[in-house]
Simulated scan of single mutants.
Amino acid sequence: MDLTRSIRAIADAADAPGGIIDWEAVAEAAKGGVEPGDLRMEPAERKAIAADVRAARDGLREASGVQFDLPDTVEVQSRHHWIDANVSTFERVLRPLEEQGGGVFPGIARSVNSGTMAVTLAFLARNVLGQYDPLLLADGDDHGLYFVRPNIQRVAVELDVGYPRFRRWIAFHEVAHAAEFSAAPWLSSYLEARMEEGVDALSEGTLDREAFGELNTAMTAVEGYAELLMDRAFDEEYADLRRKLDERRGGGDPLTRLLKRILGFEMKREQYERGAAFFEAVADERDLATASLVWEDRDNLPTDAELDEPGLWLSRVA
Rank of each mutant, 00 (worst) to 15 (best):
T4A: 02
R5A: 06
R5S: 14
R5K: 15
A9S: 13
A9D: 01
A11H: 01
D12M: 05
G19Q: 07
E24P: 01
V34D: 00
D38R: 11
I49H: 10
A51W: 11
D58L: 08
L60C: 05
T73Y: 12
I83Q: 03
F90S: 13
R95D: 08
P96A: 12
G101S: 02
P106L: 12
G107A: 12
I108R: 04
A109I: 04
V112S: 02
G115Y: 00
T116M: 12
A118G: 08
A118Y: 11
L121H: 02
N127M: 12
P134S: 14
G140I: 10
D141C: 06
Y146A: 09
F147A: 05
N151G: 13
A156F: 04
V157G: 11
V161P: 01
V161A: 00
I170Q: 00
H173R: 10
E180H: 06
S182M: 05
A183P: 03
E192G: 05
E192V: 04
A193F: 10
M195W: 00
E196Y: 11
L202F: 09
R209T: 14
F212L: 07
E214C: 09
T217Q: 00
M219S: 10
T220G: 05
L228C: 02
M230L: 10
D231P: 00
R232F: 03
E236A: 14
R243W: 11
G250V: 01
G250D: 01
D253M: 00
P254F: 00
L255W: 03
L255Y: 00
R269K: 15
Y272R: 08
G275Q: 04
F278T: 13
A281Q: 06
R286W: 01
S292W: 06
L293I: 05
V294Q: 03
W295Y: 03
L301F: 05
P302G: 04
E306N: 10
E306L: 08
E309L: 07
W313N: 01
A318W: 11
